[in-house]
Design a protein around this nucleic acid. Structure first.
Length: 535
RNA sequence: GCGGGCGUAGCUCAGUGGUAGAGCGUCAGCCUUCCAAGCUGAACGUCGAGGGUUCGAGUCCCUUCGCCCGCUCCA
């Protein structure tokens, strides 16, 4: 999470995270996983309303990214944006993760210092020892080369031992009782090296030998890259185009924290958008757009999209990465970030949009031995018959990678509203498109024929809208209490059958956010709701 | 992984080593013509889990799990 400064945004009034968590439990949005067994660190389940909310957000992404990409808006090349979906497996060939860098980069053993709470990569820790050999009972001084600790420890070590040589910590026998950690001033504080496996693993087959070891994917992206060639070989697509996938990923986080924000099992919604490398654009026909054009297009549209599903406040920001923050293969990356109650005044990442060059496909090409070049028959030299010779290249990629569970959490936080001026202060202001409950129908009182009319209206609305979300009805207790319950669940519209309904064929519709009411003809209710849900 | 705080009803929380509590919510009935209203009643707990001390543990001790905060980590 970034504590990025926000010079142009005044700090928003913070919302109490505790109250949001309590509401989410109380109304069945989010439960702790395996709660009856004491819970499991880093895992959260969704209850009925949470499941619907999450499904609605995933569905909104699916509709707007896959089915009608970018709302039908043309890309920077003026043409419709082309996206195809895939659904790849959580478990891939282990070499996929070697190619992606996940195996090498995240299996480093670390040692901790019990005194200073510092953590060091085991293979980076070196130790000054007497050049003569035996140090007797004297302490040994550990350091990290090119860090301040090197000079500091060298000075102390020379004083203690005279001429020095240095060895790796790993060459000394454990426990390192006489070793003084790089930033400590007493010996014996280093823990034994610990492996930090950020990827979960399992075994294929029943014998569970090391050669059968597989990993649970830490991102959905690599399944896309691994199938990119199949997709372009079998689908008559042409670069630029994208492949999209939503699915579950796993990261064995060191410290799961902040409610569902950093869960060990989570769902991603990713696009790998393949574009023509810059070297194939020059003097080329047909003119198309550069990777950076596409990068900016996706970055800006993804920002708009998050606003469109209800994150319109200044709690949402776009943050372009600094040069020194970029991965070595990326020329541009930005994060779409939300100011969560627990991160404020800092922000937490919802989606990263990265221009990754050809890094991923090139890696897979190298590790698999399979050429991952796209044969672009619209480019290259024009032949006498008017066709093109074609060129082959490894496409560059723009990756908009969003966290679904983080999106849900941001929506929950943004929707949570406490208004002390209302009889029931807590309400969830979900965008109607995301609201788990789309509408409720009440009889004002449970007699005089009102329940019958309400049930008929409820049945009709259910027939028309239940595919999108719940349509509720409730006749118990006072009308205020029923409105309040719907407010808390984030239901945007309540239709109430009253005395006038029986004579004038009208009902009241109450707006969740304002509490305002208007009368609508009974027959016009479906059209009213349809309009409000943006259908 | 380290340090600190916390864990009692669905939620928020009281609870002095001596019978397990309140408010809200939930449910039922009555009442009720628009905002958690009123009246009556009901259900709901292995006090996070395991062990120990004690005649007796929600309370004291140990272990463990989980949540929150700060470090650390965050491809």
């Amino acid at each position: 999470m970034h504590d990025s400064p926000t010079p142009h945004h005044p700090p928003a009034p913070s919302k109490p995270m505790d109250a949001i968590v309590a509401l989410c439990k109380r109304r069945g949005f989010i439960y702790q996983a395996s709660e009856i067994y004491g819970g499991l660190n880093g895992f959260w389940d969704y209850g009925p309303l949470g499941t619907l909310l999450k499904r609605n957000l995933r569905e909104a992404w699916w509709q707007d990214v896959v089915m009608l990409p970018c709302w039908g808006r043309p890309g920077p090349d003026g043409k419709p944006v082309s996206i195809l979906p895939v659904d790849t497996r959580i478990i891939q060939h282990p070499k996929v993760w070697e190619a992606s860098g996940h195996v090498a980069g995240f299996n480093d053993p670390m040692v901790d210092c019990r005194l200073t709470k510092q953590r060091y990569r085991y293979d980076h820790v070196q130790v000054f020892v007497p050049a003569s050999g035996d140090a007797g009972d004297k302490p040994l001084f550990a350091y990290i080369s090119d860090q301040p600790s090197e000079a500091k420890q060298r000075k102390k070590a020379e004083k203690a031992h005279g001429p020095l040589s240095s060895v790796l910590l790993s060459s000394l026998p454990q426990p390192w009782a006489r070793v003084i950690a790089p930033d400590a001033d007493a010996p014996g504080s280093l823990t034994e090296p610990r492996q930090f496996n950020l990827m979960f693993h399992s075994f294929v087959g029943a014998t569970a030998s090391e050669s059968d070891k597989v990993y649970l994917r830490p991102e959905t992206a690599q399944g896309i890259f691994a199938q990119a060639k199949n997709v372009w070989d079998t689908n008559r697509v042409r670069v630029p185009f994208g492949i999209a996938q939503a699915g579950t990923s796993f990261r064995n986080e060191v410290t799961p924290r902040n409610y569902t924000f950093r869960s060990r099992e989570f769902e991603q919604m990713e696009v790998e958008f393949f574009v023509v490398p810059p070297e194939h654009l020059e003097g080329d026909e047909p003119a198309t757009s550069s990777p950076l054009d596409w990068y900016r297009f996706w970055r800006d549209w993804r920002m708009e999209w998050w606003k469109s599903v209800g994150l319109g406040s200044d709690n949402l920001q776009l943050r372009e990465h600094d040069k020194d923050e970029l991965a070595h293969y990326s020329q541009a990356t930005s994060d779409i970030e939300y100011r969560f109650p627990f991160s404020a005044p800092g922000f937490g990442e919802l989606e990263g949009v990265a221009y990754r060059g050809s890094f991923d496909l090139t890696q897979h090409q190298k590790h698999s031995g399979t050429k991952l070049e796209f044969r672009d028959t619209a480019r290259g030299q024009t032949l006498p018959n008017g066709s093109r010779r074609g060129v082959a290249y490894v496409p560059h990629v723009i990756e908009p990678s969003a966290g679904l569970d983080r999106g849900v959490l941001a929506i929950l936080c943004e929707a949570y509203t406490r208004d002390e001026s209302r009889p029931s202060p807590e309400l969830m202001k979900f965008h109607p498109r995301l609201a788990p409950i789309k509408a409720a129908v009440f009889p004002l009182i449970e007699k005089d024929g009102m329940p019958e009319v309400a049930l008929r209206l409820h049945a009709e609305l259910s027939r028309r809208f239940a595919r999108l979300g719940l349509i509720e009805t409730d006749a118990k207790q006072s009308i205020g209490k029923r409105y309040a319950r719907m407010d808390e669940a984030g239901c945007p519209f309540c239709f109430t059958v009253d005395g006038d309904t029986l004579t004038a064929q009208t009902v009241t519709v109450r707006d969740r956010d304002s509490g305002a009411q208007q009368r609508v003809h009974l027959d016009a209710v479906p059209a009213f709701l349809s309009d409000k849900l943006g259908l």
